Deep mutational scan, measured.
Amino acid sequence: DDWEIHFNNITIRLHGVSEEQIEELKELIKNGAHEEELRKWAEEVNR
């Protein structure tokens, strides 16, 4: 699925990401992940 997530003036566009991966991302954000951590997560997902 395609997703677009907005938070802290950042837009993250995701393509072909599962519901499970979105839940992981929500947890990262909820736990106060920094932009660098989110980038690493996105790189892993996009492999």
Rank of each mutant, 00 (worst) to 15 (best):
G16R: 15
L25P: 00
I22E: 01
H6K: 12
T11G: 05
L38E: 00
E4W: 12
I5E: 02
N46T: 10
L38R: 00
R47G: 14
Q21H: 08
L25F: 13
G32W: 04
L38W: 03
L38I: 13
G16A: 08
D2Q: 11
W41S: 01
W3D: 02
H34L: 12
T11Q: 01
K30I: 06
V45Q: 10
K30A: 11
H15G: 05
V17L: 13
E37M: 10
R39S: 03
N46A: 14
R39Y: 10
E44F: 10
L28N: 00
I29W: 07
E19M: 11
E43V: 04
E24Y: 11
S18Y: 05
L14V: 09
A33I: 10
V17W: 12
E35F: 11
K40Q: 09
I29V: 06
I10Y: 05
S18E: 02
G32V: 01
A42K: 03
S18L: 04
E23R: 13
I5L: 09
A33Y: 04
V17Y: 05
W3Y: 14
N9K: 07
W3M: 09
I5W: 11
R39G: 02
N9C: 14
E43S: 07
L25D: 00
L38C: 03
H6W: 07
G32N: 04
R13Q: 05
E44A: 11
K26Y: 15
I5N: 02
E44Y: 12
N9A: 11
K26V: 10
E43L: 08
V17S: 01
L14Y: 01
I10W: 05
I12M: 08
E36I: 05
H6M: 12
E19N: 11
V17N: 01
E4H: 15
W3E: 02
N9L: 13
E43Y: 11
E19T: 11
E23Y: 12
R13K: 08
E23A: 12
S18H: 05
K26L: 14
E19C: 13
N8Y: 06
W3C: 10
E27I: 12
I22P: 00
E20A: 13
A33F: 04
E20G: 11
E20T: 09
K26P: 00
N31M: 09
W41Y: 03
I5H: 05
E36D: 13
E37H: 06
N8W: 07
A33E: 02
D1C: 15
E36Q: 08
A42C: 08
W3I: 11
V45A: 15
K40A: 10
K40C: 03
I29M: 07
I22S: 02
K40E: 05
T11K: 09
R47S: 14
I5A: 04
L14R: 01
R47M: 15
K26A: 07
E4S: 09
E20L: 10
E23D: 12
D1T: 14
K26H: 08
H34I: 09
R47D: 12
F7N: 01
A33T: 05
E20Q: 14
V45C: 06
K26G: 03
G16C: 14
E23I: 09
R13E: 03
E43M: 07
A33M: 11
N8T: 07
N46R: 10
D1F: 15
H15W: 15
E43R: 06
I22A: 07
E23M: 12
L28D: 00
N8G: 14
Q21E: 05
G32R: 03
N8A: 11
D1N: 13
N9V: 09
R39E: 05
V45R: 06
A42W: 12
E24N: 06
N46E: 10
E19A: 12
E44N: 13
N9G: 14
E20R: 12
E35P: 10
D1R: 15
N8C: 12
K30Q: 07
E23L: 12
R13F: 12
E37D: 12
H6C: 12
N9D: 07
E23Q: 11
H34W: 04
L25I: 06
F7G: 01
N31G: 07
K40G: 03
E23K: 10
A42S: 04
D2C: 15
K40I: 06
D2P: 12
N9I: 10
S18N: 07
Q21M: 08
G16H: 14
L38Q: 00
V17I: 11
H34V: 10
I12Q: 05
I29Y: 05
R47E: 15
R39M: 13
T11D: 03
N31I: 05
I12C: 10
I5Q: 04
W41M: 02
H34G: 14
F7P: 00
E19L: 13
E43P: 00
E24C: 03
H6E: 06
A42Y: 11
L38M: 03
G32Q: 03
E23H: 10
H34S: 15
E27T: 15
W3G: 02
V45Y: 14
N31S: 11
T11H: 06
E27Q: 12
A42Q: 05
V17E: 00
R13P: 02
I29R: 01
K40W: 04
R13Y: 13
